[in-house]
Amino acid sequence: MKNYKTKRITGKVIYHIFTFLFAFIMIYPLLWMVMGSFKDTTEIFKSAQKLLPSSFDFTNYKIGWQGFAGYTFAIFFKNSLIIAGLSTIGAVISSSIVAFGFARCNFKFKSLWFGCMLVAMMLPFQVIMIPQYILFNKMGWVGTYLPIIVPQFFGQGFFIFLNIQFIKGIPIDLDEAAYMDGCSIYKIFVQIILPLIKPALVTSAIFSFMWRWDDFLAALLYLSDPLKYPVSYALKMFADPTAGSDWGAMFAMATLSLLPIFFIFLTMQKYLVEGIASTGIKG
Rank of each mutant, 00 (worst) to 15 (best):
I44P: 08
P171Y: 06
F265V: 10
L146T: 08
Y233V: 07
F38N: 05
L123M: 11
Q269M: 05
F216T: 05
F154N: 03
V142M: 05
Y71L: 15
F166A: 00
V142G: 01
G143D: 13
F58E: 01
F38M: 04
M180P: 05
G157A: 08
D214K: 09
M268R: 08
K50M: 14
L221P: 00
L223G: 01
S47G: 00
I63W: 02
F262M: 15
R8W: 10
I188L: 11
F56M: 08
A234F: 08
M180E: 08
M253L: 13
I192N: 10
T203F: 08
A23H: 08
V231C: 06
T72R: 13
T19G: 11
Y61M: 02
L112N: 10
F161Q: 13
V142W: 01
I14F: 13
Y186L: 14
P29E: 12
F38L: 07
L227T: 02
R212C: 10
G90D: 03
M253H: 10
E274T: 02
N60P: 00
L235E: 07
I44H: 07
V150Q: 04
M26A: 14
T10A: 15
I172P: 01
T203Y: 05
D175M: 05
I164A: 06
C116G: 14
R104D: 09
I193G: 09
P124D: 04
K270W: 02
A234Y: 06
G67L: 03
W213F: 04
I170F: 07
K5L: 15
H16S: 11
W141D: 00
Y133V: 04
G140F: 05
G283C: 13
I9N: 15
